[in-house]
Simulated assay, not measured.
Amino acid sequence: MAKLKAEGCGIIRSEKVSGASRDGRAELATIIDFLRPGDELVVTRLDRLGRDTRDVLNLIHECEQRGAFVTVLDPHVSTRGEMGHIVLTVLGMVAQMERRFIKERQREGIQKAKGIGVYRGGKPRVDRQRVAELTHANLGVSEIAKTIGCSRMQIYRILKGLSGGFA
């Protein structure tokens, strides 16, 4: 925030969502919709904008379609010149590669933890016993999902696991 204020940004928006995907990034969507010709979208680092090269390039393209520029503060690069486009493309590729490395290290750590019996996975979000009880009470999948507060697909998966198959 301090870097953006020091840069003279008039409107500052932030969100606590991963840059790995555009899904659920309402603030980013609002900013893109708000951009007008001559505006400048300033981000502190490129990975704050996105970690997938295609997403980053699509975001930059959307900004340019609106007549706006994109500026990254660290390192200082802007789409105002052709060289900026090249540098941002390379930085986007590096961010994507970094994301892949992180995921690979995470996978390796989980496998190692499973090997020594430390990792057991996440906690079940839906009470399987309750699903079984409601099924035995002859409630339909939609009714069970509504009662428990989850999707029908989750109920189908649980029922498949409980009976070894669900018809």
Rank of each mutant, 00 (worst) to 15 (best):
Gly161Arg: 03
Glu108Ser: 02
Tyr156Asp: 09
Ala68Thr: 02
Ile158Phe: 10
Glu7Ile: 00
Glu133Ser: 15
Gly161Glu: 15
Leu139Ile: 02
Gly109Ser: 10
Phe34Pro: 00
Arg80Gly: 06
Gly19Pro: 01
Gly122Asn: 04
Ile102Val: 11
Pro75Cys: 10
Thr30Lys: 13
Thr79Glu: 04
Phe69Val: 06
Gly50Thr: 14
Gln111Gly: 06
Ala137Phe: 00
Leu162Thr: 07
Thr30Phe: 05
Glu143Arg: 04
Arg100His: 04
Lys160Glu: 13
Gly115Ala: 15
Leu57Phe: 13
Thr135Glu: 11
Ala6Leu: 08
Met97Cys: 08
Leu46Thr: 13
Gly121Glu: 05
Ser78Val: 04
Thr79Tyr: 06
Gly149Met: 11
Leu73Met: 02
Asp47Pro: 09
Phe69Gly: 01
Ile155Arg: 08
Ala29Val: 02
Asp127Arg: 06
Glu133Tyr: 08
Glu82His: 09
Asp127Met: 07
Gly10Arg: 02
Ser18Asn: 06
Gly67Ser: 12
Gly19Lys: 07
Lys160Phe: 08
Gln96Ala: 11
Glu133His: 09
Val42Trp: 00
Gly10Leu: 03
Glu104Ser: 12
Glu104Arg: 06
Ile102Lys: 07
Lys146Glu: 14
Arg48Val: 07
Thr53Arg: 14
Leu49Gln: 00
Leu73Val: 03
Gln154Thr: 10
Val42Lys: 03
Leu41Pro: 01
Glu82Pro: 10
His61Leu: 11
Glu7Arg: 06
Val90Met: 15
Gly117Ser: 10
Glu7Leu: 00
Cys63Asn: 03
Met83Tyr: 05
Gly19Trp: 04
Glu82Cys: 08
Arg157Leu: 08
Gly19Ser: 08
Leu35Asp: 05
His61Cys: 08
Asn138Glu: 04
Ala145Gly: 10
Lys146Thr: 09
Met153Ile: 15
Glu15Thr: 01
Lys112Asn: 14
Ile60Asn: 07
Gln129Asp: 15
Val94Gly: 09
Val56Trp: 03
Glu98Val: 11
Ile11Asp: 08
Phe166Asp: 04
Arg120Trp: 06
Asp33Glu: 08
Ser14Glu: 15
Lys16Asp: 15
Val43Arg: 03
Gly81Thr: 12
Arg80Cys: 01
Gly109Leu: 09
Gly10Met: 00
Arg107His: 07
Pro37Tyr: 03
Leu46His: 13
Pro124Asp: 00
Glu15Gly: 01
Gly50Cys: 12
Val17Asp: 04
Thr89Cys: 14
Asp33Asn: 12
Leu57Asp: 11
Val126Phe: 04
Glu40Tyr: 00
Met1Tyr: 04
Gly140Thr: 03
Val17Asn: 05
Asp23Ile: 13
Met83Trp: 03
Arg152Asn: 11
Gly84Glu: 01
Ala20Ser: 15
Tyr119Ile: 11
Arg51Asn: 10
Arg51Met: 11
Glu133Gln: 11
Gly122Leu: 02
Val141Ser: 02
Val118Ala: 15
Arg54His: 15
Leu159Phe: 12
Ser21Ala: 14
Glu98Lys: 12
Arg100Lys: 10
Val141Arg: 09
